[in-house]
């Protein structure tokens, strides 16, 4: 269970996050959406303990895993990149298979494409058990096929450990297919909170309108 009350984060005079009350239940998958700078990553980083909050409380479970937006490849091959977490080789092989990377397992991780590297980074996080899994735009570099593999892997992980999953995204596909709930942030505040279907069909929500009204440049 994650409980947020009066949570604020300021950088100088600028308040980037201002949440009155928000909670995520055990076993729930929540997608955080919103424009750039709306506070999604800041919220994830506070929950991960990577940055200090300015005010309020954010109660999170003891074991938290966080997948940063910027994927990183450690030295060595793909298997080593997963076993570095302490996971066994068999787990690494299974995860690579699940994320469609098994044919690259012996390759240097630094030679992967952006989408492949993002899936490898997810493998690394999924190799460990946690009570709260925080994912910062886990499909941003993936193609449709890669994104589908990521969604399936996240679902399986949640089902196997019963943990809470909170992920930021710009992808309605990820929100609809992987999340039980969608929270839309705007200027650090909650603009909408509900099921992905309800929010995406609500033309009053700016973020949803972008996708339902189509692109006009």
């Amino acid at each position: 269970m994650v409980e947020i009350k009066g949570l604020k984060k300021r950088y100088g005079e600028r308040t980037v996050l201002d949440l009155d009350e928000l909670s995520f239940s055990d076993g729930e998958t929540v997608a955080l959406a919103g424009a750039n700078g709306s506070g999604k990553t800041t919220l994830l980083r506070i929950l991960a303990g990577l940055i200090e909050k300015s005010e309020g409380t954010a109660k999170a479970p003891g074991s938290v895993l966080y997948l940063p937006q910027q994927s990183y490849a450690f030295r060595g091959d793909l298997v080593r990149n997963i076993t570095i977490t302490g996971a066994g080789k068999q787990t690494a092989v299974e995860l690579l298979e699940k994320l469609g990377l098994s044919h690259l397992s012996g390759k240097k991780a630094k030679s992967l494409s952006g989408g492949e590297l993002q899936r490898l980074s997810l493998c690394r996080v999924l190799a460990k058990k946690s009570e709260l899994l925080l994912l910062d735009e886990p499909t941003s570099a993936c193609d449709a096929n890669g994104a589908a593999l990521v969604i399936r892997a996240i679902r399986d992980y949640r089902d196997s450990c019963g943990c809470t999953v909170v992920m930021s995204t710009h992808s309605p596909m990820l929100a609809v297919n992987a999340a039980d709930r969608l929270v839309v942030l705007e200027n650090g505040k909650v603009e909408a909170n509900g099921t992905p279907e309800d929010i995406l069909s609500n033309p009053g929500i700016q973020w949803a309108k972008t996708f339902t009204a189509g692109w006009k440049i």
Binding site: Y66, P68, Q70, R75, T85, V125, K128
Partner: peptide, 24 residues
């Protein structure tokens, strides 16, 4: 920075993160 962020995200200790930074 990306090494530190990744290592902390995985829950590695400060010492292990420092070791990883040196190795990387």
């Amino acid at each position: 920075k990306p090494v530190i962020e990744t290592a902390r995200g995985l829950g590695f200790s400060g010492f292990r993160t420092a070791r990883l930074c040196i190795n990387e």
